[in-house]
Design a binder for these strands. Sequence first.
DNA 1: GCGTGGCCTTGATAAAGATCAACCCGGCGC
DNA 2: GCGCCGGGTTGATCTTTATCAAGGCCACGC
Lengths: 262, 262
Amino acid sequence: MAGKGSELSLVWSRPPGFAAGAVACESSGGESPCQLCSAHHLSVCGVLAETGLRRLNAISDQREFTPGETLAREGDPATQLFNITSGVIRVHKLLPDGRRQIIGFLFPGDFLGLATGDRYAFSAEAITKGSACRFSRKAYQRLLVELPELETSLLERTANDLRIAQDQLLLLGRKTAIERLASFLLDLSNRDRRAGGEGVEIALPMTRAEIADYLGLTTETVSRVTSRLKARGVIRLLTMHSLRIVKPAELAALAGFETPPA
Amino acid sequence: MAGKGSELSLVWSRPPGFAAGAVACESSGGESPCQLCSAHHLSVCGVLAETGLRRLNAISDQREFTPGETLAREGDPATQLFNITSGVIRVHKLLPDGRRQIIGFLFPGDFLGLATGDRYAFSAEAITKGSACRFSRKAYQRLLVELPELETSLLERTANDLRIAQDQLLLLGRKTAIERLASFLLDLSNRDRRAGGEGVEIALPMTRAEIADYLGLTTETVSRVTSRLKARGVIRLLTMHSLRIVKPAELAALAGFETPPA
DNA sequence: GCGTGGCCTTGATAAAGATCAACCCGGCGC
DNA sequence: GCGCCGGGTTGATCTTTATCAAGGCCACGC
């Protein structure tokens, strides 16, 4: 009763950590386009062998995007799936009066679009220019049946996204403004480390307003709290869109990071 | 590279809506125990045919629980998975100083325990007495490889859980106290309807403190806001732990339900 | 039947963060 | 070069919700 007729509910997905796979799915026209994709080792498709990759490639095309461009709109039919190969995307939900909650920021290797039901439950817009592999949802679902390792990988990521969302529930429900910002900066730091960086110099491609809408705060509060962290010598602003973590331990302590009591 | 060695990251899962399946997985000792399970049509295992069910049943045992009992503790090795067959469970995370965020309430048919990494990222405790099918995580993961329809079903549910979590992000990040409570009551109403009820008389098995920790509020605020809804004639309290929705439309309007602007 | 404890409600006050407002700064177009 | 504009910071005030406190209700045990 499942497996073939079931409407798969895909939402969006990030690498659970270091993906161990080999290659990815950017199709740029060369003889093995996915092999050249710079997001290969971070993507769901990273688990696929030559054959599977070719099949995935066959149903994908490349989509470039520029800042402000919309990839998906909340409420629209969810016909397309994306695998981000470069650039940064923000994903958000709106209330009728315009209040916005940013659900997440997507970076290369993240997967976008797999929504419960047949309509997007969120909007996705580009923050920077970039590119993504685009799939028809139907075709992707059909392929999933035939590539169980892809389905397993997707389940893994979806479960990981769920864990991340649950961490964010704790943040939004119970953390103070400074704890929220500290947690956010540590997340960015960890992401940078997973991508091979030092996790010390952090890029902030998003605006203060976007950070605010992600952390359930206002721009003013984000700005004030940033200043407090700066004043305490925990961070140093390099430019408007990059900073350095000077005291990682103090930042972690402020974040109340994942340290349940005895 | 995936599919067999991959560490599956199972978290917890609910029915995406009406599950169309046939039978479920409670093992009570009869000749086809799963067939008799009252949660069969709500559970992941609902998609399995006779053979698959028997195999699942072979690796499961029945676990009864009483109010206050702990099924999983945040930080402990995540060795067990549960499929709730009766009763209500609360799932929460803690900050070092004891602040609590309830991640969700689990009802019959919900799936619990599939955590990223090898430790539970949350605690799960019984609110009422009840029972669950218990599985070893390892055995379950092994079985998933052989029962692709089960894996598909699990992916579907995990994606659905993710959508629910994202709705909750919007609630915690951007909704006011009264909007949060209204949304919560509508969720319970919808759940009741999916379980075959009218969605009008709502059971509240949890305490005010638990509602507060789910909605990112305090007990006092939950109590005050409940009183306001009562005063406006939107709801009527029947007992401490059940109420009637008198004006569903008004409640939905207050909840700001999923109605993004034009 | 009475006392006790847990849970809930309501009131008074306090605090965190939102809102309103002014100003700064840097980039861009003209 | 100058003015404009979007984004960011900082300050003053206001609002929402938390916190502190008191009291009510109900179930349970003795």
